[in-house]
């Protein structure tokens, strides 16, 4: 089975870290992974996005026109990319920042998670990407949640490993919110 997921937000929301986390989780499950980043020329505050493809076999194109899953962290990315999700796919949005009233995405499962709010309640807005990853695994079942927890060890630099329990909580909270 070949899975692809597109993640977009603004610089500073941890889009690339989220992509790395999902990648390491897939590697932990023995899959082949392609992680393709793209970002604006600004060092901070520009747009950030990445595509992750994982599969038992060939990952194929790292460029995906119509992803089967998208994680959208801000309004700009929603306006630009939400409509690209393919029919039958999942669009997970950060409902704290994205207003999708009146937008119709036919044949796409819209999963609204107030990611900023959840991260703030857990004490650190920077964990918004962890909430997003938790929501993704719960909404798609493409990866097992314990793989994400395992992947934290590889994704975070050693000096930040003390933060792993807090991040696990954020992943769990995101998953719970996505399951609604």
């Amino acid at each position: 089975m070949r899975h692809d997921v597109f993640i977009a937000g603004y610089g500073g929301q941890g889009v690339l870290l989220a992509g790395n986390l999902l990648s390491y989780a897939a590697i932990h499950e023995g899959k082949n992974v392609s992680f393709f980043p793209a970002y604006g020329v600004e060092k901070r505050g520009g747009s950030a996005m990445c595509t992750i493809v994982f599969a038992e076999g060939d990952t194929g194109s790292p460029v995906v026109g119509h992803p089967s899953a998208s994680i959208i962290l801000n309004q700009l990315s929603f306006d630009k990319y939400a409509a690209k999700v393919k029919a039958g796919g999942v669009c997970i949005i950060n409902s704290s920042l994205v207003n999708c009233e009146g937008i119709d995405l036919p044949d796409v499962k819209l999963v609204k998670v107030p990611m900023n709010q959840i991260a703030l309640e857990l004490g650190d807005l920077r964990m918004v990407n962890m909430v997003a990853c938790g929501a993704y695994v719960a909404a798609t079942g493409a990866l097992a949640r314990p793989s994400l927890e395992e992947a934290l060890k590889k994704t975070l630099p050693e000096r930040n490993h003390r933060l792993i329990p807090a991040n696990i909580k954020a992943i769990e909270a995101g998953a719970a919110a996505a399951q609604g």
Binding site: N32, S34, F35
Partner: peptide
């Protein structure tokens, strides 16, 4: 840059 910047297993 696709092949150079991409990360893979």
């Amino acid at each position: 840059s696709v092949i150079g910047q991409m990360k893979e297993s």
